[in-house]
Structure formats: C-alpha cells, structure tokens
Design a protein around this nucleic acid. Structure first.
Lengths: 358, 358
DNA sequence: CCGGTTTTCTAAACCGGTTTTGCAAAGCCT
DNA sequence: AGGCTTTGCAAAACCGGTTTAGAAAACCGG
C-alpha cells in the first residue's frame, strides 16, 4: 500500500526530529555560523534524512525578494518563442540575469488578460518588451510599485527604457538602395498585433517606416500606398507579402523589409518567382539576426545590438530593484547598416514595370 | 519632497480604510458573491484608490500552488535561447501552459549550481530538458516531491518522460544516403556540454549515432573514427566542423549532421569550399527546425514534432501536478525523414578522394 | 568566586495573505 | 409571533518560513 500523500516535511518536523527549535533549523540553513558546528551539522543531517527543503514561497514572503525578473510580452509566448529576434533578446536578458543571480519568469497574457497574469507574477521587477505606451498595464505596474524597464517602446518620460535608433537605421537602409540606383521600392512591414492593418506611428515599426519614407522623400521619391505591404513578422509572413505584391502587379527592383525574418521570406519567395538576388532584385532586412549572415545570398541588413539590448535592460532594471539608482536613465543604442550580398545595382532595363511607369 | 518609500499597501490598510475586516477584503477579490454587492464594490474601490494589489507570494503560500511551471535546462539559458530547436520546444511548452493558465519559470544553473537554482524556484512542477539521468538533480527533485517530466533524456523507469525515436530517424537518414550510392560519409555530431569529446551513449546524440552506424554497418560500411566529428550545436559549430574535416583531408560525398543548425553550417561551409549541394556533396540534418525548409537548397532532414513534444510534456506534467493521474506514462513520438533538396545521387567520379582510398 | 562578555539556542512576533469557524441580523414560513 | 434557515461579515487560525528579543549556559580575566 503506497502512501498517497507523503506530506512535504516542514521546518517544524525537522525541528522536532532534531530536538531543536524552528529558529535553529532556519539558522542551520541560512547562517550556520550562529550555531555550534555540531548542532548545525546534526540539523542538516536530519533535514537531509527527511528530504526537507525550505519552501521557496514561504521563504520569499519574509525576505521580500524573489530573485526573479519578469519578462512581459504583449503577445502569447507560443507565438514569439521561435522568433529569432526574441531568442537573441532573451539570450541577452538571460546572460545578465544569470550573472546577477536572478531567474527569469515569462509573463504573457493569461486567458487573454495581461493584468491577470501580472497579478500572479512573483517577480522583483519587470522587463516589458514592445509594449506600447498605450497599454494600460504600464500604469498598473507602476501603480503597484513594481520596477519596470521598457524595451522597444516609444520613450515615456520618467520611465526607464532601452531603445535603438530605428529611424536612423531605416534611413541608412533606404539611402543604400537609392545610391544603388533603385527607384522601384517595396516596403515590407510588420503588421500590428491587434490588427487593423495600419502601422501605428509611435511604435518601432512606425519609426522604421518614418526612416524609410524620409530618406526616399529627401531624394524626391514618394511611394504609392500599395508599395507598403504588411504581414506577420515571420519567414512565412515575408513569403506571403512578396507573393501578394507580385500578384498585385508590383515589380520592385528592391525590397525594404522591417525584419530579417520577413526579408528571408522575401528571399525565398523571390527564388520561387525566378528572380535572382541581387541581380534582379535587392533585399535589405532589419535586425541582423544570427542566420542573416548565412543565408544565400548573405543578407544586407540594419544591425542592432540585440543581445546588448537585453543585457542593458537587466542592468537598468536591477539598478532600481536593488535601490542603487533612484532614477535610472533611458538608453539609446545605435544601429548600422551591414552590406552583404543581397543588394546590388538596380537592373538597367526591365521586362516589366509597374503600370504607372509606362 | 518625494516620499522615498511609499510602502506597498497591505490588505490591512484596505480593510481599515474601508471599515471592514481583512476577511471581507479577501472575499472581495476572491469570492465577491459571498459579500453584499455594494460592500464588495466599495472595497474594490478603496483598494483601487490605494493602489492595492494582493501580494502574489503571500497568496501562493496559502493556496499551495504557484500556477507556474519550471523549465529546467542543464546549460545556461544564455547559451540556448537562440537555439531554434529550443525556441520551438519552448513554443510548444508555452502553448500548452498558456492554455492551462500556467506561467513559465526558467531554471538554469545559478552561479554554477542547478541545485541552488532549484531551491529558489517557486514552481508546481518541472520540465527538465536534456537532463541526463546521471544528474544528481533528478533524484533531488523527486525527493522534494516535486512533479517532474523529463524531455529527451534516456528513459528512466518510474519517471514520466517524452522522447522521440532518435535511433530510427538516424537510421532512415543513413539509409537514404546509402540508397543514393554514398559511401564516403561524414558524421557531424553535437559535442557533450561537459566536454571530453566523447559522445555519451545514453543521450540523444548517442541514440542518433547508434542509428547512423547501425544502418551503415547493416550494409557493410564501417566508418573510420576520424569520420565522426563533433562541435557545438550551432551554425558556427557546423561550419567549424566541416572546415576542420576538410583540412584533415576528408572528402565526403555526404554529411550526416545530428542537428539542423549544424547542417546549415555545413551547407554554408560547403559553399565557401566551392562545393555544390547536392551535386558535389549531400547533407542531411536532424530536427526539421523551421528555417530548414527555407535554406538554399532546402534541407533534407529528419523531422521530429518539436512543438508537440513541448505540449505533451506540459500535459503529462499537469496530469500529476493536478493529481489527475497518479502514474503517468512515458510518451514516445515518431520521427520521419523529409527529403528536400540537399541530397542527391553520389557523384560518379571524384577529383580527390580520401588518401586511404588511393 | 564573581561580574561581565560571548556563545548557543528559544519563544514569540512577523511577512501578507486565505480559510475556517462562529455569530448577529435578516429573511422565510406557518 | 416564534422557530428555522440564510445572509453578511468578523475573529482567529493557518500557510511555512525568517527575524528579533532575550534567556540560559559557557567562558574569562582578575
């Protein structure tokens, strides 16, 4: 007959078994030097024999610290975990967190509610990724007095955050294409998660779009609305957008993609459409994720220091969690264009052009 | 003068302010129907005005449940988060966890000690990934009475777990190459994390190696030791192993890679070495991660249901966490070979062969 | 041998909630 | 109106630890 519920031993069990007080047991685990050596080791032996392990939750209640950092994402984790950008960002976050002795707790909407998920989260601080300032959760977290650092959100005053020069990077990408003589340009964007189709101006994608269009406008080039297409931020999304654009009759000589994943999809779709890259069409990505240097051809893209972004976020957060710095600043990291093999001079003459150019 | 420490309001504060007992406040949050509607809403209003949020840790202490699942990895998270295989697995885990209302807590060695990290982890159960049975943590977790499911570990009796048919998949991959006429085969393996260079027989990589060698031996082919090379499970690792093999004078007509990431590295290295795939050399991967179908050429590989593996792990774990099933089984998922563009017939004649063949 | 210090350990308070128990008031029924 | 059930809330116990305050014992110099 198997014991159905061999109740987890508590500190009182160990104390009774060892013939000491609860206090002594606690000391044995946390400050053994306050006990006579032989007492301490006897207690630990008893604890071991009973299979006792201090209850983490109870312990944290008194210590008022969980040594855990929350990573908050507005999308479901099941959607973004295999996104290479998110992977690299998590890697940076994990690197710094592990160095500082913190574990990671991922917070994503629970049954549709981020607020509910936050309510359960036992964390010392939160790193929010790509949370637009409009999200009500931001105010909620601040009201609860929980330290918060925002990554890739439009800068909020009085709110520590990390961002990159999205607009500058996008501008560099567009200028690169202009310098190669391209004029038939397709912009491939990431659709907003809540849908609606419109790129919201305050977000990361808004900044990148502003960068693209600004650079083009500076040389007198104005893109027709149908030359700006959006889709999911994945390889499949890139494939779909490129195919659709082609079906719509667009024949761009160059593509500005707002994410490398989408750019890789565009590369793939181009191959299927019989287009050689970069001879027939150039492609520029954004983010410079790891695989981008290994695609065929290697992807020209806007580099951003993804891992460093994650590390900085943790450092910033810990500064306030551990009360070192009362008012931490906002950090802005640079981007730079990396020219590889997916871009080349605009083709001299084209079989097909978009109707408007006829 | 700013208040330095506007202490987090507690339940007692809300009770006093609203002129009720702590019990009433607790009811207002957890079972409002036990209160007169106007009392409940008054309490919630007061709570809101004070910015009160029930302390998650305290709450979980009494409820004896954290609604959190631990994901345990023997390697540092900072190493594996951008591994696409791990990303997909996490995606499956996250999908099921979110559906069931659980959050995810990642447990990785803290200052070198998995045990220390486990001691802090506030979780209802643990999914251990690639933890070899030899790890002392396994016994420790079981002793602590924490539900545990092992993924990709050699099956332990009495221990729920998920595995795949690694050996069968590997065999299929090797047979595919044999059927194409290949005899000069290079095996590219994942080096064990603890190093030492040898592939440990009980792990996933051991099974795959057994599958490869078994299939080859069945046709009378015995690989020389130098035709089995190992490196880190990454694109860079694949590149390095392939280059090194070439420098060592090996001229394989086909490569069996134990992970898609490494296979992609091999693809890349082959391109640099001027080898066309599959005309000059065939490559077979393992795992079938998302990008593998989009490489150039698309990668022939052994498919395993990565996401499903993650989902199943969560389902299995929750069965015991929620005491539905006292003794959950072990699940074994199938693998199958996916033939794409990176494999082809062995070249008829070769300029260079490995010295032994002269 | 004695007052003072140090060591070793304990009882009790506390962390911030939830849950059980209990009781007064209100509602219901005849 | 009187007995019975229900409603609405409070008091106290509890979850499983840590920490503070303090007592008893051991040590120590003179």
């Amino acid at each position: 007959m198997e014991e159905r519920n061999p109740r987890r031993p508590r500190i009182a069990d160990v104390a009774r078994e060892a013939g000491v007080s609860k206090t002594a047991v606690s000391f044995a685990f946390n400050s053994p030097n306050r006990l006579a050596p032989k007492t301490a080791s006897r207690i630990l032996d008893v604890a071991d024999a009973l299979g006792y392990r201090p209850h983490p939750v109870a312990r944290m209640l008194t210590q008022r610290s969980t040594h855990t950092l929350g990573v908050l994402t507005p999308q479901a984790l099941s959607v973004i975990f295999s996104n290479p950008f998110f992977g690299a960002l998590s890697e940076g976050i994990a690197l710094a967190a592990e160095q500082e002795g913190y574990a990671l707790h991922f917070i994503s909407p629970l049954r549709g509610s981020l607020a509910r998920a936050m309510g359960r989260a036992m964390v010392d601080g939160v790193i929010a990724i790509g949370l637009s300032a409009r999200h009500p959760e931001v105010e909620q977290i601040r009201a609860a007095g929980l330290p918060l650092v925002m990554v890739d959100s439009s800068a909020m005053p009085d709110q520590p955050g990390i961002e990159i020069d999205d607009e500058g990077g996008a501008r560099a990408a567009a200028e690169h294409l202009l310098n190669l003589g391209h004029t038939e340009i397709l912009v491939v964007g990431v659709e907003p998660p809540t849908s609606g189709g419109e790129v919201e101006p305050e977000g990361v994608m808004g900044s990148r779009l502003r960068g693209y269009l600004g650079a083009l406008a500076a040389r007198g080039l104005h893109l027709p609305p149908q030359a700006i297409c959006v889709g999911p931020a994945s390889i499949e999304g890139g494939i779909a957008v490129m195919r659709r654009a082609y079906e719509d009759g667009l024949r761009p000589t160059a593509v500005l993609a707002m994410s490398d994943a989408m750019a890789i999809g565009v590369l793939r779709a181009a191959r299927e459409l019989g287009l050689r890259v970069p001879q027939d069409m150039s492609v520029v990505g954004f983010d410079d994720i790891d695989i981008s240097q290994h695609t065929n051809p290697p992807l020209t893209t806007v580099h951003q220091p993804i891992r460093q972004k994650g590390e900085s976020a943790v450092r910033l957060l810990l500064a306030v969690v551990e009360r070192r710095d009362p008012r931490p600043e906002q950090i802005r990291l640079e981007t730079r264009l990396i020219i590889r093999g997916s871009t080349g001079p605009a083709p001299r003459r084209r079989q097909e052009v978009i109707p408007a150019r006829h």
